[in-house]
Computed example of a mutant assay.
Amino acid sequence: MRHMKVNSGKQLREEREKIGLSQAKLAEISNIPQHLLSAYELGKEELSEGYLKRLLSAIQDNDRLEEVLTRKKRYKNHTYKEVEHNQTRVNKHALTKENEEYTKLINSLRTNTVKKHKAISLFSGCGGLSLGFSWAGFDIKGFVEIDDGLREVYTDNFPTASLIGTDITKISQEQILTIKKKVGDLDVIIGGPPCQGFSLSGKRDVNDPRNSL
């Protein structure tokens, strides 16, 4: 990398990926906004002479590169310990006066909303997107969520929504027909699929399997 020349955005991306350097990390060490690096690599923008000099200086600084790559490796290999769930503490917190008033407010908004349209939620998480649609007048009839913990929270937040399935890639035609028979025709399908594979904040990896979801 010390004698590397960057003649195009495509070449920059190839060389960057050879050493396992993400676009975000390159933006960090070169102090160039990531959206400019992204546009340059995609051939949509040209970098100024000053930015190109800064870029070359950054990728030729082996010590700085080693520091960033090592930090990334430590993070990748980091292991997390299971934390024991203290349900007593959670219940005590949930019974505070402030939370009780907040719960009443949420329930009043739900009660006062005239729900006319039916929807199902994919990649549901704990139900943030569903909550917004619920307030807008939609009745959430079913959901799909692969994470056990999030699925449990979603069920608490939307007890009338039926679980269609967990892994969206394995939802069968039979499951789809079952939910259709139960709720009838749907008006909207909502969802928040993972975007790490193509987001500016992610690795922008075209081979990320989540891109196909």
Rank of each mutant, 00 (worst) to 15 (best):
M4Q: 03
V6F: 00
V6M: 00
Q11R: 03
R13I: 05
R13T: 03
R16P: 04
K18L: 06
I19F: 00
S22A: 03
K25Y: 03
A27D: 08
Q34E: 06
L36D: 08
S38Q: 09
K44H: 07
E46R: 05
L47T: 02
S48C: 01
E49L: 09
L52R: 04
R54V: 10
L56Q: 02
S57M: 09
A58S: 08
A58T: 04
D61M: 01
D61R: 01
E66T: 13
E67H: 06
E67I: 07
L69M: 02
R71T: 11
K72T: 07
Y80E: 14
Y80W: 07
K81I: 14
E82H: 15
R89H: 08
V90S: 15
N91K: 11
K92I: 14
A94C: 10
A94W: 09
L95I: 08
E98W: 03
T103Y: 05
K104P: 07
I106P: 07
N107W: 02
N107D: 12
L109E: 10
R110P: 05
R110K: 13
R110C: 11
T111E: 13
T113E: 11
K116D: 12
K116C: 06
H117L: 03
A119G: 06
S121M: 06
L122T: 10
L122Y: 14
L122H: 11
F123Y: 14
S124H: 08
L131M: 15
F133A: 13
S134F: 02
W135K: 08
G137W: 01
D139W: 02
D139V: 03
K141F: 07
K141V: 10
G142Y: 02
D147Q: 14
T155S: 14
N157P: 05
A161Q: 04
S162C: 11
S162R: 12
T166C: 12
D167K: 07
S172K: 05
Q173P: 01
E174S: 06
L177K: 09
L177S: 13
K180H: 08
K181I: 01
K182W: 00
V183M: 04
G184T: 01
G184W: 00
D185N: 02
L186N: 04
V188A: 09
I189R: 13
P193Q: 09
C195P: 04
F198T: 12
F198L: 13
S199D: 09
S201E: 10
G202W: 00
G202F: 00
R204L: 08
N211P: 06
N211Y: 11
